[in-house]
Structure formats: C-alpha cells, structure tokens
Design a protein around this nucleic acid. Sequence first.
DNA 1: TTTCTGCATGGGTCA
DNA 2: GACCCATGCAGAAAT
Length: 447
Amino acid sequence: MSSTKVCFNSNCKDALDRSRKGWRRRTGEFADLCDRCASAYEEGKFCETFHLNASGWRCCESCGKQIHCGCIVSFHMFVLLDAGGIECITCARKSFILTPNPAWPPPSLFLPVLPERNKDFSSKNWTQIAGSGPMPWRQAPSLFSSSSAQLELQPRIPFEVDTRSGSDRLFSIDRLSTASLERKTADKLSERVMNGSLKLGASDVLENGNAGINWAEQANVRVNVPQKSSFSKNDTSTSHFSLAVSSLSPNDANDQTKVPGTAAPRPTPTPVIGKIGAGLSGETQIRNGRPRGEARPRTQLLPRYWPRITDQELQKISGEYPNVGHVSMLYYPNHMVLCSNSVFTPLFEKMLSASDAGRIGRLVLPKKCAETYFPPISSPEGLPLKVQDSKGKEWIFQFRFWPNNNSRMYVLEGVTPCIQSMQLQAGDIGVMFQLARYLAWRLTVLP
DNA sequence: TTTCTGCATGGGTCA
DNA sequence: GACCCATGCAGAAAT
C-alpha cells in the first residue's frame, strides 16, 4: 500500500503532497484536507463544489434555499422539521433558539416550540420526516432535544422498538440483562417506570417499519468518501443488529405521546452495527446545528474520527438489507456496521485499540464523538445501549464515563461478547452512522 | 484465582 | 500547555 496520503475528500483525492507549491500544514479537522477542499469547506461551499450533481438537494421550507441533505458534510446545515421537510440552519435559528452550550439545551428553549412542530405528526408519516436526512441527535428536537435536558436530570431506561413487526414495544426493566445495569440501576429504573419515563422513546416514526427508506430513495444518500476501500474477505457472511439507546423524560411523554395519532411512544435514535469495508472520510458534524461557516468549536471531530465509507459500500449495504428493521447491525467479514435499513450516514469512526478489542470489555469512545452523538450523561453510570441483531440476539452496552483529569473518558462497557462474536480485533475500525434520527455504528478492519 | 471496576498515568496530539 | 485516550494498576467482587 502506498504511504502517500490523499485528501480526505473522496471527490478530490488529491495527494497531500506537502512539497508542492501552496501546501500548508493544516490543523484540526483540516489536517487531512487539501487546500482546495479545505477552502471550499471553510467557505461553506463544499457541497456546491463537490456534490452539486449529487442527489439529496432539498429546499429550505422557509427561505427556499437549496441545501444538500445527502452527505455528512452538510447535514449540520439544516434541521429536520417534524412535519416534514427541512429548514436551513439560519431559518431554524429564527424559529427556535439554538443554545451556544454544546450540552443539550434546556427544555424551556424547546418546549414552547416543539409542540407546534410536532403537531403534524398525525398527518405526516415517518418516512416523510426521516426523509429530511440525517442529523445529530442534538439537532433532532422532537426526538431528543426536548428530552435532552431531562436526560441530564432524569434517570434513563432502555427500551426496544421492534420495527420489523411494525409495532413498538418497550424494553422492560426485567429484560435488562446487563448485570451491572441490574446491580447499579435497578432502583433507579423502577423509579423511572413509576415516574413515567419509560413511556418515552418509542415512536410514530416506525409505524411502517421503514423509516428512512423514502429518503434513501429521494436523496440517495451520498457520503463524502473515497472510493479506495473495498470489501474484504467474506462479504457473504452477514447478519443484522439494531442498537437502541433510550430514554425520555416525563416531559417527553407529555410532549410526544399527546400528539394526536401517536399513541405509541417514540423511538430513540437507534444505532446499528454491521460489517463493511473502509472508505475515506466526510466531515462529521457540529453540535447544535452550528453552521459550518462559523468559527469551528473545539468540539468538532478530528479527522481521525471522520467516517470513511464508500458509495459502493453504502449501496451494497442498502441493497443487501432493504427490508430489515429501521436499524440493523450488518456483518461483513472483518467489519461491523451499525446502520439503518436503507440510509447510512457515517458520523465518525474509531480504530479499535488493543484494549478496546481486549477481554476487558471496554471500548473507549472518543470524547467528542461520545458527547456529540450519544445522549448526554451526567452520571458516571451512564445509560444502556441495546443492540439487537436480525436474528433476535441482543446486546446491551453501557455507555458511561469516568472522571479523568477534570474531564471525562467515555466508554462502552460490556462489548466483549459482541467483539468476540464478530471476531473483531485491534485495528478494526468502528464507524458511527446515522440514519435520519438513528445512529449506526460500523466496525471494520484496516486493509 | 480470576474477573471486574474505577482511577491514574503518560505518550501523543492539538491549539 | 492543555487535552485526549490507550493502557496499567490496585482494590473489590465473583467464581
């Protein structure tokens, strides 16, 4: 393999020839972009420059501005409207406050607005909603944001949504198999049930079990990735997983379950796992919908965590798993992908370290990735993430953190069975995907 | 004795 | 210099 680095932008792939004229060392998220791509990115013209002919362009419902909704680079530039369609971040800001705090905004900022935005749930199906494209949890007010602050304040409880059967079913406390969960949180969980938090999370979005499909067809999601990677080894051995994180607050219940026609609770973003090959990157995202043109906060993901997956890989996954549940864990040899059934938007990736893949059963999550794409946690105990494969096999990971030098170190605990089952090793790469409001996670092996 | 859990440490990276 | 994160380590718990 050549050691020559190329631009992270798959549509460019210029060699990062540091000896050529004009080359300048970039830092942070631009470290692996060539000058041309970095400039386009900095100027907010990345999609216009590289994705102009790609599908996924949609109009802001408010101002009519064309927004590219089909790639990882641009998905922070719009906000999903629960009633369907999208709104550019500028208009969205006019509609409701996006707090500068990277943490979840307080419900007081969202609640007065969200009910209005949610009121049309009865007349819009999920595919329309999901069809707006991927977005970080923090940008999905109807699903998480309104509950986000509560998530910090309220205990969480995992739940499961069975989309294959077309019915939502809650994940009951006594089904929590994780020993640590039972040991540490049983009391709290009971309390959560009593206070109603268990209601939250399920969703109107899954009524047809096909969330995201329409959008996939419409937008034909294209991820900014290089074409270099390929599936390796046994692409035939596959299986599916869905991973659900859960929990919503009583406020959510009030908010969401009161929506006419949405008797079922809402689903939380549901990551998926599967195996596929590696590609190259797209940019990930900025919290709270911060426009890319603005000063970039330090919360942005570093290039090393940018997801890498090729269009071919996405198409392969989509083609092979067209009718699985809304989220699935896909197995390919040496790869594990958390994804959703038709639309895959990689959010970030991480190469498994020896300790991640070791017997200790703890997978260290990049801090920014964890804080960006996972629900916020205020307690070191964190919250459970549930994974279910297409055969019904379930995994529960505990998403938690340790205090570390006045900071936090985020980990997924209880991953050993999954790691062993998938025969993952150090050097494999995990990628977090997002399908509309769902997360997905991919693990793959470096060539 | 082994495994689990929580925290500390130090090298690497970034601003 | 600050921060991140891979890893080590010690004490607790389980077998």
